[in-house]
Write a protein that binds this DNA or RNA. Structure first.
Lengths: 245, 245
DNA sequence: CGTCCCCTTGAATGAAGTCAATACGCGTGG
DNA sequence: CCACGCGTATTGACTTCATTCAAGGGGACG
């Protein structure tokens, strides 16, 4: 839950009361195993889900088996505000690592946000950022070549992790296999591998086991033509801040 | 405005009162010329925009000039519920054809939707569908080859136009240049051209001037691995219908 | 009737995919 | 403790899809 609070505070400063209200979202906790589906295309979305720990991915599969990962959920991410409006999921969500998430019934969500409008705005901010990320992924796949694509993805993930306090200096966990990276970037595993080799050779990354080190984030951003503005992290909602200290 | 109503009614049946309320959104109308920017990356979003007629595109540009179109706005589309939460735009919107759109001040929007909750749900549905479309574009760019990509795009556009009554039988307007198609599908104009040639040769499309004919939509869907479920068009919100006839 | 924009076509090049074999790392069980 | 097996990573040779460069054509409009 603290990841979530930490993230929302990139948008507005929350009051103590707001935080207490948020803590009510943590009452129904569920675990998922590696590779387990959290929800599948066609299922009816019944609850809101909040990532407490671990990594998930959102993905779609074509009839012939091709798979595209269309997003990552990191700790502190909310899986789809409001989806319960829709009758069925048009995509699936799977656990990449062991995952803990909070399930929030729509009624509870409505009750809490009705009483805390600033909180609701922070949640909308979260949703708008997720949309912006999705657009950026479209740009990534449409315009960038292999090296740029992977560099851009690594920058995004690193910065998102840093926002929730999950980096240590210039390193972070990176539990994604090369096959999954391929399904994310629209490349084959072979080509992902070669691209990573090149990035290592250029000293842009150190990636070993499940740990990623980015010796020079600026350099990596440059290679990936990464501009973080789409993450809207600069306390844009400061005008909504509480007066309370 | 009727396009908008027609579209929302794919989700819930609106009461006469709802429709009257919606008509209040049409008080501030603006025109844009071909290729004119509606709003630019970096600008502050101040109003909600509703497409009355014409086509717009949402796009992002990289420093080195590469451009990716990340979405089309067709008549009846709403350009970003809620963006006024964000301080600045992370992308631009441009008119592809002459465009008429309604500008809705946030206050008016809040007032109207507060009084008409079912309307608000329909608007959320609209926003969620837009997100789903964005995800599908990610899949399109990541997994499909040139032919599939273009076929998929044409299916989507055709069906979205049909939803708002802008098709006639199996034909519709299609004012997109091949260069813009390239920026949309992540291909060069040359390759777009060759791909269209092949589609014509296979009898999948007749595309001449700004008119598109799809002789056999099923066939085109098959080629594009197009599954319309992500458009959520099946009156999913029927349980919210008004009792009023 | 010329100009501008858009579409079309050909030939050469290049980036990424395919196929296939091999190597590594790690947990399990003999 | 070592052998085995499985998932993941790596590498090489070849192919294919898409880009690049460059030149020409066609139509709308002033």
């Amino acid at each position: 839950m603290h990841h979530f609070v930490r993230k929302l505070e990139h948008f507005v400063r929350l009051s103590g009361e707001d935080k207490v209200a948020l803590s009510r979202f943590g009452s129904d906790i569920r675990q998922f195993r590696v590779r387990e589906d959290v929800i599948r295309e066609g299922d009816a979305p019944k609850v809101l889900r909040l990532m407490m720990s671990g990594w998930c991915c959102r993905y779609k599969t074509l009839e012939d088996g091709r798979r595209q990962i269309v997003g990552f959920f990191l700790p502190g991410d909310l899986c789809d505000l409001n989806t319960f409006i829709l009758r069925e999921m048009d995509h699936s969500i799977a656990a990449i690592t062991p995952v803990t998430l909070a399930q929030i019934p729509p009624d509870l969500f409505n009750e809490v946000t009705l009483a805390h409008p600033r909180l609701l705005q922070a949640l909308w901010w979260e949703a708008l950022v997720r949309e912006a990320i999705q657009r950026e992924w479209t740009v990534n796949l449409g315009q960038r070549d292999a090296l740029e694509r992977v560099a851009h993805l690594l920058c995004e993930v690193f910065i998102r992790l840093r926002c929730v306090g999950l980096t240590e200096g210039n390193s972070c966990e990176f539990p994604i296999t090369q096959a999954d990276l391929g399904d994310t970037t629209g490349m084959t595993t072979v080509h992902v591998n070669r691209t990573l080799q090149e990035m290592r050779a250029r000293g842009l990354i150190v990636l070993k086991g499940k740990t990623l080190v980015i010796p020079d984030l600026d350099a990596l951003q440059q290679v990936g033509l990464f501009n973080p503005n789409y993450l809207h992290l600069e306390r844009e909602g400061a005008h909504l801040d509480t007066n309370e200290a």
